[in-house]
Amino acid sequence: MSTSPELLASPAASETPVARPGKWKESLPGLARHGFLIVFTGLTLWPVMWVLKMAFEPGQDFAFSISPIPSTISFENFARLIGKTDNAGNWVFARQALNSFVIALSSSLLGILFAATAAYAFSRFKFPGRRAGLLAFLATQMFPGTMMMIPLYLLLNYLGLLDTRLGLVLVYSTTSVPFSVWMLKGYFDTIPKELEEAALIDGASQTRIFWQIVLPLSAPAIAVTFLFSFMSAWNEYILAAKFMDSELHYTLPVVVNSAIDAKSVRWGDFAAGAVFVSAPIVALFLALQRYIVGGLTAGGVKG
């Protein structure tokens, strides 16, 4: 695939305008397509609507009726979730939401910083150990997570980082680095070397080239990588539950899971919690969706 500036400059280059003046009737195959899409989308979203329904219906039972529309709308589940305060009067929910947010944000930013520099090196420089390094990063994807839980616990304990936000941030950012390196490297590979050569002749140092030329041009890929890192940190449950020792340090997924008892699930609380945990990610997805399409490909295409 050519790397001409045209293709680079617009991440969603083939977003051709949809509406054509005067085209009212869709051809029959078109209608069939819409029909299929509507049905499929409905099916896909059905479980989601269900969760919403259980969140808005009062009570803790698993909703029985098939319809995804709640029979009565009540905010009591949400209110109970949000209003939780502990004995000392701390607004627990706010602290937990804040924890989630701070941890997810810090770990994705840190992860991107680490990954971008490494990906740039892998993309642009040839140095001994390059292949080994790439392979090593890929290998980390293959470590079964279960094996890591206890060693990580012990390691964080040793470093004195248990029950701290910093501990979780470090763990999350490190686990997101390999995948981010993979994606960003792919994207960096598609930036033409000539741009950097011109900058070299212009007198820019390597660092400047990285920060002022390569990074701004990689905005789509960085957006997508950020999204993935944020999402996995935000959703992570088991490590957060294990490493944190006080309720004020918990994150939102821990709250959601507290609705699961030994015998049963309190569906109202669970659904409300699920809504809180999922909504920001969905919103982020919506905001960054055009980058998702562009950014992923650029990471994958080796043209």
Binding site: S4, A9, P192, A198, A199
Partner: peptide, 14 residues
């Protein structure tokens, strides 16, 4: 002390 003009212009797109 040189200046260069590239085949594909190499203009900074952003």
């Amino acid at each position: 002390d040189i200046a260069m003009v590239f085949q594909s212009y190499a203009l900074y797109p952003h």
